[in-house]
Structures are given as C-alpha cells and as structure tokens.
Write a protein that binds this DNA or RNA. Structure first.
Length: 631
RNA sequence: CGGGCCGUGGCGCAGUUUGGUUAGCGCGCUUGACUGGGGGUCAAGAGGUCGCCGGUUCGAAUCCGGCCGGCCCGACCA
C-alpha cells in the first residue's frame, strides 16, 4: 500500500499515532523511503511512551509579520509563534502549542496545590445573582461583571471569582470543626467585562485562573493557611521560571485586610510597584502610598534640598503675578518646588477637605479616597468661590473652619514654607505649621516617586512595572457572615468560617513568561513551560542519511522521556531555523548533511544561543543534558 | 466612558485628499521545476460583498449620515 503524500512530506492522513508513521519520507519518487518505525519506537508499549509530534501534522501557523493589532511583546509573539489566535477583544483561542504550555503551567500549579493539601473542585462559570447580591458584590462589581438573564428572566452572572459559590458549599458541607481546615481550589475560565482589554492575554475578558479558598476555625488557622499558600506560590513561580516579587497590595473588590501580590516584573506590566534593592522591601504603589511609608521616612523640603533647617522665619506676603502653578512660582521666586506648599481641595463624599503637600508632590487620589473611606473629586471652580478661596493661590493659613486640613508628614515636619496668599497674585513665605495654620490630620497620600527612601531601611526606592500573576488574601469571616456559612466548633458553638482566597492567573503566567523570556528572534521558553522539550530539525530533506538520523533521534529522544517536535516540512532550512527560534523550544537538535559527514549533529540551546556538536550516538544524552542545564 | 487612530484576499499594506468602468503590491497558499545549514530561485495559478446599512451621483473602496468591530493613551482593574 502506498501511503498518501503531499508536498509538505505528510506521510499518512490517517496514521494519527505519530510513531505509527514511517521515517520522514517519502517526499517524491526521488527520495528513498525509510522503512519501519524508528528504532526504539517499536511495539505498543514503546509507542505509548513516545511523546513525538510531526510539524506537518501540527496546527502551528507561524507568522512572518507582526500582527497590526498587537503591541505588547507577549501578544505579538504568542500570535506570531502560533500559540493563540484572537477571537474578539480580549478573547482568544489557544492553539495546540498554547494548550501545551498552559497545561504545563496547570500541572505545576496542581502539583503544588495538591502537595499543600488542597483539593480540586469544578465550579460553574454561570452563577446565580442572589448570593452576589447578599454579599453586595453584584453592585460592587458593577459593569465589570458579565450579567445575563435566562429565558425565565432569572439573573445570572459569569463568575470572575468564586467566593460566593464556594462559601455556600462550605456552609452546607463543612459543618464541623473536624472538617477544618480545608482548602478547595479549581482551575477554569474566568470572565470580566473589562473596560479596556489590552496587551493580549495580559488583560483579557476571559482568562484561565486557578482560584483556591481556605476555610479555618479562627484567625490563627487562617494565618497558617495563608502562609502555606504563600509558600506554595513561591514554589510555583520558581518552577515556572517566572521571576516574581512579592508585594504588599491593595485588596480591591475582593476585600479583606492582609494581602500580597506576586508581581512578575515586565516592561508592559500594568501594575506599578515600589521596590528597595537594598533590603528587598516591595509594595504595590497604592499600598505604599497609604501605609507603606512611615512619617519619618517622608522627605521634607529640608532633606530634599540638603540644606539645614532654617529658623522660624516670619510670614511675609510677596507679590507673585501670574504664578498660579508651582512651576511658575518656583521659577519666579527662585525657590525649589519642594519648598513650596501645595494646597489641594477636594470634595470627599460631600465634606470638603484640604490636602497639603510639598509642591513637587502629587496627590494619589485613590490612596486619599481609601484613607478617608469616601469618594473624592477635586473642587470645582464654584466650590473654590463658595469657600472664598482663589485657585492657584490657596494657602493653608486661609483655609476656613469646616474644611478638614490633611497634611503630608513632610509638611508637618517642615518650616518656612512658601504658600499661597489667598488673594490673586500673592504668595506668602515663612509659613509655618502650627503657628500659621492648623493640621487636623497627618496623612501620607503623596504619590511615591523613584528614589524616595525605603520605609524599612532608608535606601532608595525604585518604581517598577509588573504583571500580577498571583494574589493571596486573608478575607476573614465577611463572606461567611454575609451568606450564613457556619460550622459547629469543638465547644458546641456555631461559628463563621474564616476564609482566605488565593489566585494564580494561568494564562497570565504564560504571557508573563513570554514577556520575561524573549529576544528579537522570538520566544525563549523556560524549560518547564515550553510546549516541547526538543525540536529535531533536519536540514537536507533530500538526503536519506539525514532523514534516517532525524527519525532515529526523534525516537531516541522520546524514549528518553522528552517531548519531541520534528520539523519534517519540505522547506528550506532557513525557514525551519527561523521558526525554531520563533516558537522558542529550549533545545534544537540539527541533523544535516554537513554535520553527518563527520558523524555529528548540532545542538543549540535557545535561551543562551550556545551551540555544540555531538556524535550521532551521543546526541540523545547530550540533548538531555542540555535541557537539564537550560534555564 | 473621554481623547486619538484604523477596518481593502489568510497576514502586512497601497489606493480614499482630487469619485470613472479590469482594485494593486509584498508575504502566505496551490501546481510544477530547480534548490535545500539561517525566511532561496523561476514559472503558472487560486483567492476580495473594499466592516455593515442607508444616502448623494450617470457612476462610490473613494463623498455624506448612522451603526458595528479593532488598536493606542487616559480613567479603571487579576
């Protein structure tokens, strides 16, 4: 029987078990056929062990050009290298290579979760609205949550996370302290109707996530569960080959007090965080702005200029025509911006507040809102007028009673400020806190900047971008209380479950790894995440020696337990090299006429670019070693 | 949701300002030949309701209106 064949070297359309196909040929009448399965790949048992794939049988559409709608490196490369295809804004199909890499991440996550004593569940994507209304999150999530109605008019949502569902399950099934502690997790698609999907997989509307929920008798148990998860997360990201920083973070809509983010530093990361290279301290930028920095660490005008503290100068009014901005004022008076006093006015949930900070600083409005527990917005022109204030020339000495004065620690600590004179074109110098104006509350709401001192050690902080790949929270009992989830404790008392929740963005990890590991030629997967371990690349498809060797290497590498991709296309070698670098398989084994004439094949480690030769007979061992040594 | 840009074979683009009858180019795809160690060469092909709807006009990819989709910046967030 003559196998069907096509130009690309496909041997058999129905020979779907890769090892059942034969050699690499035939490619045409001129090309000799390699008979029989490659050595080491005979028999049913061996066949089942083989983890080989032929390029001609794989849906692996690589693109030579950059897709017009992709910007982030991970987005460009995951599309170009044939891992994913876009379906709608922020929604993707994972192609076979993408599935393989996602599965490797999932496997690592499962192993570590299971090792930590967690149990896997499958919860639904479509969830009823009622529990969400009871916890208040139906409203709180707002437009972010996909909401639907079924034919009977029942309200449903696509779950972005599963606290409600799992808490109800715990309330029903974890009824005794003997059932606790418990940690339940799942891996599945999550939905979020993003205001603005972007960066490809990094911020999609559908994303693959592992979410886990711990249930304990008390806070002490929660802390133990929490620390166990943090430890598991460190192992997960280390195994994935993704560099992460663990930072103190903001709880967002999930809630709870203590929480940490695992940020993968990357150029396109959408989260800003501060880190101190001296002591390792790191915090989410917003968390840092609220409580991460102690008052003593705040740079006053004195520390910033390096000048000694002047004595308490008298308050003097000076003419400053056209100086409604700090920039103009600083230039006009020849005073550094950090010695001027900026007085910002906000409406905070109906109550006016004044925020004082050095002129070179900006208010982090989110941090302010969080510190006050109210929404804030800048004063309107009418509000300035109503309070008798002149925009651009507001000084704290003229802030009327009834407006709370919140001051940055630097303002409280400084003397001799240059502040607004509360009339057009007038400022005042020598303005001192306490003497000239009151401070109702010292509050750190200035946006953290590069170079600010670290609260832990005083060293310089750096602002960096990162991708949130993991987030762990201590939730406490709020969900259990809202949903009435209780258990009977040892003393017979009915108590609410104390919860924690823990997420890993599986699809984000893939994108984050792509962000961290690529070059101009393409992806460079860490070996734990690569879709295949080894790529076998025969260069001369008309050479029987080359074909036979490639087939033997394919079988031998598979027998050694590696996932092997054989590029059996009948195309120019250059095409294969370019594709090999693009898809980023860690080890390339090149079998070509040139090397084989000396009895050798070439190995290339993608991540390092390192090349080596090995005798044909030792290639498998050399490839295994190269893979083990790869990043 | 504000601001900007963009929808033309599978992908990347030109053509639109100044309407004109066969809508081009590169890559990819098909067939054949040559080639075969870094996206090679030649030849012959296939493939397009120019995002959708409506309007103006003798005539619309091109002008006007509406809608849909996508990207970037911002606000927001895993």
């Amino acid at each position: 029987m003559l196998p069907s064949m096509d130009r690309r070297g496909c041997v058999s359309r129905n020979g779907m078990t890769p090892c059942a196909t034969v050699g690499v040929g035939p490619y045409g009448p001129r090309v000799p056929t390699v008979k029989g399965p490659p050595p080491g790949c005979q028999g049913r048992a061996a066949r089942l062990r083989c983890l080989v794939m032929r390029r001609t049988r794989l849906l692996l559409p690589t693109l030579r050009e950059t897709p017009a709608d992709a910007e982030a490196p991970s987005h460009v490369l995951l599309v170009r290298a044939g891992f994913v295809r876009p379906v709608a804004a922020g929604v993707f199909t994972a192609l076979p290579l993408g599935v393989r890499t996602l599965r490797r991440i999932e496997t690592i996550v499962r192993e570590e979760m299971d090792a930590a004593g967690a149990q896997e569940l499958r919860m639904p994507i479509v969830v009823p609205a009622d529990p969400w209304k009871r916890t208040g999150r139906w409203e709180a999530y707002g437009e972010e949550m996909f909401k639907l109605r079924d034919r009977a008019g029942r309200e449903l949502g696509l779950a972005p996370t599963h606290e409600e569902v799992v808490t109800l399950l715990a309330g029903a099934e974890l009824r005794s302290y003997r059932d606790l502690p418990a940690n339940l997790y799942q891996i599945g698609w999550k939905y979020r109707d993003e205001v603005r999907p972007r960066f490809g997989l990094l911020r999609g509307r559908e994303f693959l996530m592992k979410d886990a929920y711990s249930f304990d008798r008390d806070e002490e148990g929660l802390r133990r569960s929490y620390e166990a998860m943090r430890a598991a997360y460190r192992r997960i990201f280390r195994r994935c080959g993704v560099e992460v920083r663990e930072v103190e973070a903001d709880a967002g809509l999930i809630g709870g007090q203590v929480n940490h983010e695992f940020l993968a530093p990357a150029g396109v990361g959408e989260d800003l965080f501060v880190r101190c290279d001296a002591c390792g301290h790191a915090a989410d930028l917003e968390a840092a702005a609220v409580g991460g920095l102690g008052a003593g660490a705040a740079p006053g005008p004195v520390a910033a200029t390096g000048q000694p503290v002047p004595g308490a100068a008298p308050l003097v009014e000076v003419q400053t025509p056209g100086c409604a901005t700090i920039e103009a004022l600083s230039a006009f008076l020849g005073v550094p911006a950090e010695r001027t006093l900026k007085c910002m006015l906000y409406d905070a949930g109906g109550a006016p507040v004044a925020v004082l900070l050095p002129g070179d600083r900006e208010v982090d409005e989110r941090a302010l809102a969080r510190a006050l527990g109210r929404e804030v917005r800048p004063f309107t022109a009418q509000e300035f007028e109503a309070h008798g204030l002149v925009k651009g020339y507001v000084g704290p000495q003229g802030v009327p009673e009834g407006i709370d004065v919140l001051a940055d620690p630097a303002v409280a600590a400084g003397l001799d400020w240059v502040a607004g004179g509360n009339q057009p074109d007038v400022h005042a110098t020598g303005v001192a806190p306490g003497r000239d104006f009151r401070i109702d509350r010292v509050l750190r709401v200035a946006r953290v900047r590069d170079g600010d001192p670290c609260p832990a050690c005083g060293g310089p902080l750096a602002i960096a971008r990162g991708i949130v790949v993991g987030h762990v929270y201590q939730l406490g009992a709020r969900y259990a209380e809202a949903l009435g989830a209780t258990f009977l404790d040892e003393d017979g008392a009915e108590r609410h479950h104390v919860m924690g929740c823990y997420g890993v963005g599986i699809s984000r990890v893939m994108a984050a790894a792509a962000e961290q590991h690529h070059d101009e030629a393409g992806l460079r997967w860490p070996r734990a995440l690569a879709p295949f371990d080894v790529l076998v690349l025969p260069t001369n498809m008309d050479d029987p020696d080359v074909l036979r060797t490639a087939g033997e290497l394919e079988a031998g590498l598979a027998a050694a337990g590696l996932d092997v991709l054989l590029d059996d296309r009948l195309v120019a070698a250059g095409v294969k090299f370019a594709d090999a670098d693009l898809i980023g398989v860690p080890v390339q084994v090149v079998a070509g006429r040139r090397g084989l004439s000396a009895g050798a094949v070439d190995l290339k480690v993608r991540a390092t670019g390192e090349r080596a030769q090995a005798p044909v007979g030792e290639t498998v061992a050399a490839a295994v070693r190269a893979l083990a040594a790869a990043p």
